[in-house]
Design a protein around this nucleic acid. Structure first.
Lengths: 160, 160
DNA sequence: TCCCAGCTGGACAGGTTGCCCATCGGACGG
DNA sequence: CCGTCCGATGGGCAACCTGTCCAGCTGGGA
């Protein structure tokens, strides 16, 4: 029935949704809500974590509440062969929350946060003040109509 | 000592780091590791959640493990006054994981995932096939040298 | 100096976890 | 058609953790 190539099924989907809605509930409570045996929930959770679908249950920290309410995205143009050094540099900056390499000649996309618009200047200076970064263009995030979410995707994957 | 304007202190920082590293441990185990009383850990956790620093402990789902290994970022140019409709449209697409409005005339930044490069075409068509979206430019994420992280920021905020 | 918030250590009942087992059912291959 | 295999079930067990009290201590601010 199940192989390692299988995607998730409807029960997995409901389980993920349930845990997303109310993370504090335990395995037993899940089994009650989903009308299945406790062992089943435990087995599903183990399998989801083994397969990597669920990475963990770490605390979701809000940078804004930490004092960093400003988010910005910077596109960096990197000179040839400097990729490794630039990555090391960027990963050493706490305000760099995420870094992707993207299509385009030596381009990178960086997500950064700052304490204020004024502070953003300091962060940008620190980010781009490094040999190997040829050019940078920054866009400040004004609003976040769709915060990061995965549930709709989970339900689509579970519904097949 | 503490007011609502206070940022987090060193103990809060250690607590967040500990829970990030080993999310399965409970309050009691935290108190043992941090060498403080259980009540203290409970009080700190309550405060962090009340202040919004910790949003929750939901499962961290990996889209790649769900069958969506391709990530892309699209910049959309929106015609005047169409913002609301475009947001509604984008939030109805499961593959849209995140949406920000950014500086620049009517621009939006969208994070999308797809099952394959070929499938990405389908997703993009669905995303941009909507009145009000004037132009779209897409960048495929090739690598992710720095996955989303907050811990360095937490430690900086806690270290003050 | 007094006051107060925060931390401590302890206690309690109740619920939950991790783990074991025997059984049942459907899916599959022979 | 039958045997095998795997997942789900329901039950039970000891150990543990949670939520919630409490009294006492300490350090900093008024």
């Amino acid at each position: 029935m199940h192989s390692l190539n299988d995607s998730i099924d409807a029960l997995d989907g409901k389980l993920i949704r349930l845990l997303s809605d109310e993370p504090r509930i335990g395995v037993l409570e899940c089994s009650r809500r989903l009308q299945v045996a406790r062992g089943t929930v435990q087995a599903r959770l183990d399998r989801l974590q083994t397969k990597g679908v669920i990475g963990g249950f770490g605390p979701q920290v809000d940078p804004a509440a930490l004092g960093y309410p400003v988010t910005a995205f910077a596109t960096l143009e990197i000179s040839q062969g400097q990729g490794v050094d630039v990555r090391a540099h960027l990963s050493s900056v706490p305000e760099v929350l995420e870094l992707h390499t993207i299509t385009g000649q030596g381009d990178m996309l960086v997500r950064i946060v700052a304490r204020s618009n004024a502070d953003l200047q300091r962060v940008i200076d620190r980010v781009v003040g490094f040999d190997g970064i040829v050019r940078a263009s920054t866009a400040i995030a004004l609003e976040n109509p769709v915060p990061y979410r995965v549930l709709p995707l989970v339900e689509q994957a579970a519904g097949e």
